[in-house]
Nucleic acid binder design. Structure first.
Length: 558
RNA sequence: GGCAGGGUAGCUCAGUGGUAGAGCAGGGGACUCAUAAGCCCUUGGUCGGCGGUUCAAAUCCGCCCCCUGCUACCA
């Protein structure tokens, strides 16, 4: 089979707070599992993302802290890089939108879209906060709702009556940044002619029948209503400068500029790899596929705006799939930075192992609906599933083999038992089935497929009872244990996209010295006579007191 | 309000026309290699509500209720 070319694009985290487990489950973990699988298959994979350095919330946060946007960005970017490294998110490049390269690529795209007539200028009346000297996004204006009189409506919407508002309509408006009364000012901005792409997008999306229903239907809904042209520049000083004379004080707006990061990061990767043209294989080859992993809040940007930009620019591949996840809630409530309602990744990684969380998040991955994270469920899944089903399988087989067969893989005599042949066939079938699930980005199902094999292997062992057979029929026990070791080697590969660290250890425990991925996406046969090291448990059983300790951290001000 | 997704066993969820499923929790049992793990059996559900189509509906249609998200200048 000829290798496929797979571009794995992952949402650009906003560099104003550290990452929490919900973001990991929404985009980074599924992307990583998907990329690791395709690499094991021998496919050509490029997985990129980076920190989104720009945008008003970063400047607001910098002011609140008495520091600079640059400092806020740098601190959180360093935190992201550290989290991904420790959590095993295997980016080929994790960069940022603060690079010279990114600014150049974004400006080039901006310029080319102007030349092609897809971007035009128009005047806009916006609210301006004279006290902080800044134009205000609608969300940063509060006031009295003109519909219901509620005092506390935001510039975009009234939470009391649900009306969609225009910030200019608010009575007694006040700036959330300074409490000043904002004043309307006229400013000239660039607009992306999204409306012109509406029908082209609709035809395209209708053909994407492999997309998740939530993503496709939602997008078709947007297109049915009709896209509006959007302003893509802002009166800010933090961001990528508008590359047009007379607009020196303005910046390209983040959502237009950040999605271009997928392309600029691919180019940066190619440059660093010493082959500056290497990105083209992922972006220009007709059979290359691009997958965009992210949370549901980012769907419109990846199914309408970014494709429209690509259509306008020309010559680059549109997304093949946008497997957006729903949200992971924390003990029933939406994750929130301000209320400290989240599992913060740097904290988690300081206190716990990586794979139990990767397992938990993959097992409840919110592929079709929101999923809930509780520490009780985390402990249960660790103890009942990782430790008891998979870890114990490895441990019982290896301790038994070590004790009775001189710490080497036993040599079976004669033809294998039908039950053993069936067991190995089950493992082989699981590679096909799990692979099919992963390629369809149904990762929960793929993990279940692998775990069903571990359960089956425990059943197989109980039926064959090698601990009894070893006293009466040594050849029978030898054959069973040799088979079980092959099953473990297979499971180590099957589970490795999900649990890279512990699968690496399992691989060593069955006497393998090479890299686990060199076996590819197949079961490796472990040769008779292979020496086995002293077995050590793959996972640690957790105490229930952990639940209380961790839950007490939720909602506390840190 | 509009749009989208979801509402199935105590919990977490699978199941898109043909006699309701899995894991965990609860109950019982045989075993003993293993981190008292694993294995077998079992209790448990008017599939959100009402109506309709059909020989047959968790599944298709209509209305309603509840949860989540989006609603375009937060990204």
């Amino acid at each position: 089979m000829t290798p496929q070319t797979i571009l794995v694009c992952v949402a650009w985290p906003y560099a104003n707070t550290p990452l929490h487990a919900g973001q990991i489950a929404g985009a980074y973990l599924p992307a990583d599992i998907f990329a690791r699988y395709h690499r094991m298959r021998g496919n050509r994979v490029l997985m990129v993302s980076g920190s989104d350095a720009h945008g008003t919330p970063i400047t607001v946060r910098a002011e609140a802290e008495g520091t600079t946007p640059q400092a806020v960005f740098e601190r959180n970017h360093a935190s992201f890089v550290d989290t991904f490294a420790r959590f095993g998110i295997s980016f080929d490049l994790f960069t940022s939108t603060a690079t010279v390269n990114h600014a150049r690529v974004a400006q080039d795209m901006f310029t080319r879209l102007i030349e092609a007539g897809h971007i035009y200028t128009a005047e806009q009346t916006l609210l301006f906060d004279a006290k902080v000297g800044r134009f205000l996004p609608d969300r940063y204006v509060e006031g009295v709702c003109p519909r219901c009189g509620y005092d506390g409506a935001r510039g975009d919407q009234c939470d009391n009556c649900g009306s969609t508002l225009d910030a200019l309509e608010l009575l007694q408006p006040r700036s959330k940044l300074s409490d000043a009364t904002p004043e309307p000012r006229v400013s000239e901005h660039f607009f992306l002619r999204l409306s012109a792409f509406n029908e082209q997008l609709r035809t395209w999306v209708e053909a994407q029948t492999h997309w998740r229903p939530a993503v496709r239907n939602f997008t078709l809904g947007l297109l049915r209503e009709g896209l509006h042209d959007r302003a893509i520049t802002r009166d800010l000083d933090w961001g990528v400068p508008v590359p047009v004379p007379g607009f020196e004080g303005k910046r390209i707006y983040v959502w237009f500029e950040a999605v271009i990061g997928y392309l600029s990061a691919s180019m940066e990767w190619a440059e660093r790899a010493g082959d500056p043209e290497a990105w083209r294989a992922f972006w220009e080859a007709p059979d290359a596929r691009a997958y965009y992993f992210q949370g549901k809040d980012n769907v419109p940007f990846h199914t309408t705006i970014w494709p429209a930009i690509l259509m306008g620019y020309g010559g680059l591949n549109l997304p093949y799939d946008v497997p957006a996840n729903q949200y992971v809630t924390m003990s029933g409530a939406k994750a929130s930075s301000s209320r400290n309602w989240a599992v913060w990744m740097p904290d988690y990684l300081d206190r716990h192992d990586v794979d139990p969380l990767r397992y938990m998040l993959a097992a409840v991955m919110p592929e079709t609906s929101d999923a809930d994270f509780t520490w009780a469920e985390y402990v249960r899944r660790n103890n009942d599933e990782l430790v008891a089903t998979w870890g114990n399988l490895v441990h019982r087989v290896l301790t038994l083999t070590r004790r009775h067969f001189e710490a080497c893989v036993p040599a079976p005599e004669g033809a294998p038992a039908p039950a053993s042949t069936a067991m190995l066939a089950r493992v082989d079938a699981a590679f096909v089935e799990a692979g099919r699930h992963i390629e369809a980005v149904q990762l929960r199902a793929a993990l279940q497929t692998a775990f069903a094999v571990a359960q089956e292997a425990n059943r197989y062992l109980d039926e064959r009872a090698p601990w009894t057979a070893v006293r009466t029929d040594r050849a029978h026990a030898a054959e069973t244990l040799a088979t079980a070791i092959d099953v473990i080697a297979g499971l180590a590969s099957l589970l490795r996209p999900f649990l890279p660290e512990s699968c690496e250890r399992a691989w060593r425990l069955v006497g393998q010295a090479d890299a686990i991925e060199s076996a590819g996406w197949t079961r490796r046969h472990v040769e008779a006579g292979t020496p086995l090291p002293e077995p050590a448990p793959l996972f640690t059983k957790l105490d229930d007191t952990l639940v209380e300790e961790e839950e007490s951290r939720l909602g506390q001000s840190s």
